[in-house]
Amino acid sequence: MPSNKDKNAEPTPETYDNLAAQPAENNVQTYIKDLLTLDVVTLTGNVDLAVTGANGERLRLGRLYNRIEEMYMAEDSQVRVLAITHVELDKDSVTYIKEGLSTQDEKLLTYHLETVRAASEARAAMAAGVGRLLNLSKPA
C-alpha cells in the first residue's frame, strides 16, 4: 500500500484555523473543515457519455458527472474503483489499490497519483483564495 507525504504544496495549519474562525452564519466553516481532508477516487468503466448533443451543441459538463455517479450507484454498475487515496493535512496519505492490476490499470494508477498531486496543489491555492475572497474589508 503506497503512501506519500508532501508538505510543500500545503498551506500551514494556521491558514485553515484562521479560515475556520469565520462566522458560522454561512457554510464557510463547513467548507474549510472539509478541506482538511482530501479523497481522490479513480473509477474506470463503460458509461456512454457524449459531450455534444444530437445537434452538435455542447452539453452541460456537470451533467456528465451526475451520470457517472448514477451509474456507479446502480446495482448492475459497470463502473469499478481502481484506486482511492485519502490525504489528511499534515499527515501521511493512504492509497487503496484494487488487486490484480492489468498493464492498462498500472498506467492509470500513475495517472491517479498525478491527480492526487494536482488536487493537493489546487486545494492549497483555493483554501488561501477563499480566505482572500471573504476578506472584503480591505479595498481590492
Binding site: D34, V41, L43, Y65, Y111
Partner: peptide
Amino acid sequence: LTRFGLDFDTVNYVAD
C-alpha cells in the same frame, strides 16, 4: 473526466 468537489474530494473517471 475529473471532478474536484467543493471540499476538493476528487473523482476521476476513465472510460474502458
